[in-house]
C-alpha cells in the first residue's frame, strides 16, 4: 500500500507541475478535472485583476415602462474583521466569476445564443430571485466595467441581456 500511495503522490505532483506549463495533454486533463485535483497556481497572472465589474438590472412593469437601473454590489466594504471571518467573499467571488465568464463568452463570435450559457442563466436566476416591491413583469441586466477607486475614466459598457419574463 505504501508503494501505491507514493506512486500516486509522485504522479499527482508531476501532472500538477506539467499543468502549470499548460501543455496540451495536461490541458485535456484539466478540462476534465471536475474535482480541481490539478491546481492552477498562477494567481493574479498573467493579467492582474485591475478592473471592477458592475452588474445592474432594471424591471419593466405591465404597462411596458422600464424602471431605473439598480446595481447589485459585487464587492463588499473591506473590514479588519474580514481578515478572520469573511463569508461575503464567496458571493463576491462567485458574482465576479460568472460576470467575467459571461464577458469572455460574449466575445466568442461563434456563440449564437448567450442566454443558454451557464453564467447567463446563473445571473438571470439570481436577479429574478431578488424580492420586488412593485408589479414587475420583465427584467433585464447589464454589465459595466470600471477601474477602481481612483480612476479618471467612466465605466465602460460590456454586455446587455435580453428582457426576460419574471
Amino acid at each position: 500500500m505504501t508503494t501505491i500511495c507514493i506512486v500516486i503522490l509522485a504522479a499527482w505532483f508531476l501532472i500538477s507541475a506539467l499543468a502549470q506549463l499548460k501543455w496540451a495533454p495536461t490541458k485535456w486533463l484539466k478540462a476534465h478535472d471536475h474535482f480541481s485535483l490539478i491546481p492552477n497556481w498562477s494567481f493574479f497572472a498573467p493579467r492582474p485583476g485591475t478592473s471592477d465589474y458592475h452588474l445592474v438590472f432594471r424591471d419593466t412593469d405591465s404597462n411596458g415602462a422600464a424602471g431605473q437601473w439598480r446595481e447589485i454590489p459585487l464587492a463588499d466594504k473591506r473590514t479588519l474583521w474580514g481578515a478572520v471571518w469573511n463569508p461575503q467573499k464567496r458571493r463576491t467571488k462567485t458574482l465576479s466569476d460568472v460576470v467575467r465568464g459571461l464577458v469572455i463568452l460574449s466575445q466568442d463570435r461563434t456563440l449564437r445564443d448567450y442566454s443558454l450559457t451557464l453564467p447567463y442563466l446563473a445571473i438571470l436566476n439570481y436577479i429574478s430571485s431578488i424580492p420586488r416591491s412593485g408589479p414587475s413583469v420583465q427584467t433585464q441586466f447589464m454589465i459595466l466595467k470600471s477601474e477602481g477607486f481612483y480612476s479618471e475614466r467612466d465605466p465602460q459598457f460590456l454586455f446587455l441581456s435580453k428582457e426576460h419574463r419574471l
Binding site: Q20, W41, S42, F43, F44, A45, P46, R47, P48, G49, T50, S51, D52, Y53, L74, A75, T92, S96, E147, G148, F149, Y150, S151
Partner: peptide, 27 residues
C-alpha cells in the same frame, strides 16, 4: 508558478500592478 507567471507577464512589468489591484473594489 505565481512568481514566474508575473515576471513573464508584461502586465506586471509596469510600475503600478500592485496599486491597480489594491485600487479595485473587488480585491
Amino acid at each position: 508558478t505565481a512568481g514566474i507567471a508575473k515576471a513573464e507577464s508584461h502586465h506586471w512589468h509596469g510600475t503600478n500592478a500592485v496599486f491597480a489591484v489594491f485600487n479595485t473594489r473587488t480585491y
